[in-house]
Amino acid sequence: MRDGGMGELRMSRAVFEAVRAHGEEAYPEECCGALLGRRVEGGWAVEAALRAGNTRTESARNRYGISPLELIGAKREAGRLGVEIAGFYHSHPDHPAQWSRTDLQESHWVGCVYVITAVAEGRATVSNSFLLEGTSEEDKRFEGQRIEVLEG
């Protein structure tokens, strides 16, 4: 978890562990998925994580992509739950849980969260959340958020 930046990302222990378990299962490749939740004061409260396949099969050890069709399904599920697509998660196999230049270039959901989990030799270590801030492609940037894991 990372200090600094504004706001926080809330999620239950079960969702947090599900995201991390996905990273371990996908190792040495990157995992990815969608986070469903609702806006709360200071950030997002995530209520569910939906696994997605990694479309970048030719370079899955250091790239990820989610099919738009899976996003259409995620949107339907969000509607069913009465929540929104709050953001996405992916893993960094044997690499720190910090956003890369590729992550920023290829992130376009301004106002949404991107959770990155470092997976070292198959074990999930640090998970960090970054809010994609800005008003457009030209001024977008990642701001670190604190992840608040809700027990029980």
């Binding site: 370079s59 790239r63 989610i66 738009p68 259409i72 196999p93 270039q105 290829e106 376009h108």
Partner: peptide, 12 residues
Amino acid sequence: LSIIPSIAGGVA
């Protein structure tokens, strides 16, 4: 009609 900004990234 769904508008879907792409979702991608990665370490490298």
